[in-house]
């Protein structure tokens, strides 16, 4: 059975028109994951997916090793030192979720110079020698407003919950939201708070600003991890609950499901699947295999709508985030889409 799978993979590689040397397999190659943070449910799911998918890959002999390393303090210096250690330990590729886009460039350059393939994802690095699997966060923000525009044809007042101030992701999503608002021309953002992507912080910030806002808020645009907190704050203030865009967390989805069953509440949910770590793994494997991979790739969003809510909720671990794990074929599709 295993042979068949391997054979299938090899055929897929050959069929997708990449280098013939793809058959020169990667079974003796070692890949490391350098991760900067593990203290929330998204990161826990990300590490879980990595373990599951790479565990199978190692067992199947696709690669020799795929070890995950996480730094304790989410600090650039610490992660730079970690990458240097990984170079010394002789890994063939390092998959990085970086603490800073620029801060690790020195260490990444050292890795490239030592002949190590570096693939960054989610928290990407700007060093040109590394590959980047980036998220189009701006589009994600814009999609939220476009959804609201379809659903609420009258337009109206919106409340924006932002992420952690000063982080690039927060600026990008917010820029997309504002672009969407400008393009659709029927919404006004009447309030904006920072929820730090955390449920309790969002609840507190929304509870604080809500009394000063007009009564007719029709929608809440969010960045993920903050939707449930916003719902709690609206409920505590005794207000009608507007359309709150969710971010694929289990608490958000289960709250949505409760409202849907009780009153036909409609919204949508969008985020990045933590399993993107496995996409990065397969991309690294493809590069080691000699495939011609463009330096900039884009991760697909995981979007949940009214009709597939139940399926996604059932597949989401309690306390976790809706997830998909990527296969070699998915990675090849992303690669050929970019080139």
């Amino acid at each position: 059975m295993k042979t068949i799978t391997t054979l299938g993979m090899v055929t897929a590689v050959a069929l997708s028109g990449m280098t013939v040397s793809a058959i020169a397999d990667t079974s003796d190659k070692r890949i490391a994951l350098s991760n900067n943070y593990a203290g929330n449910s998204w990161r826990q799911a990300m590490l879980g997916s990595w373990e599951k998918v790479t565990g199978e890959a190692v067992e199947n002999g696709t690669v020799a090793a795929a070890d995950a390393f996480t730094t304790a303090e989410n600090q650039v210096t610490e992660q730079a030192a970690q990458i240097q250690n990984l170079i010394l330990q002789g890994y063939d590729a390092i998959v990085v979720n970086a603490a800073s886009p620029e801060g690790l460039n020195g260490a990444v350059k050292e890795a490239c110079d030592a002949g190590v393939v570096v693939v960054s994802f989610d928290g990407i690095v700007t060093e040109p020698c590394a590959w980047r699997i980036a998220v189009d966060f701006k589009q994600m923000g814009k999609d939220e407003v476009l959804y609201l525009s379809d659903k609420l044809s009258e337009g109206g007042n919106l409340l924006e919950i932002r992420g952690l101030a000063g982080v690039f992701v927060d600026d990008e999503i917010s820029a997309g939201i504002h672009e969407g608002v400008a393009e659709t021309g029927k919404f006004e953002i009447v309030g904006s708070v920072h929820g730090n992507w955390a449920q309790d912080v969002s609840q507190k910030a929304v509870a604080g600003i809500l009394p000063s806002l007009p009564d007719d808020i029709v929608g809440v645009v969010t960045q993920g991890g903050d939707g449930y907190g916003a719902a709690q704050a609206f409920k505590a203030a005794g207000r009608d609950i507007p359309v709150i865009v969710m971010g694929n967390r289990h608490d958000e989805l289960s709250w949505w499901k409760e409202q849907k069953d009780a009153s036909g509440y409609e919204t949508m949910s969008v985020s990045i699947a933590p399993g993107v770590s496995t996409l990065a793994f397969w991309v690294a494997q493809q590069i080691l295999d000699g495939a011609d991979v463009p330096k900039d790739l884009t991760v697909p969003f995981l979007r949940i709508d009214q009709d597939n809510l139940e399926d996604n909720l059932a597949n989401t671990e309690e306390g976790g985030v809706a997830n998909v794990e990527y296969t070699l074929e998915d990675a090849q599709a992303v690669i050929s889409g970019a080139s």
Partner: peptide, 12 residues
């Protein structure tokens, strides 16, 4: 109060 415990709840 906030409808469940989370790993990052004490941060601030």
């Amino acid at each position: 109060f906030s409808g469940g415990a989370a790993l990052n709840m004490g941060e601030e």
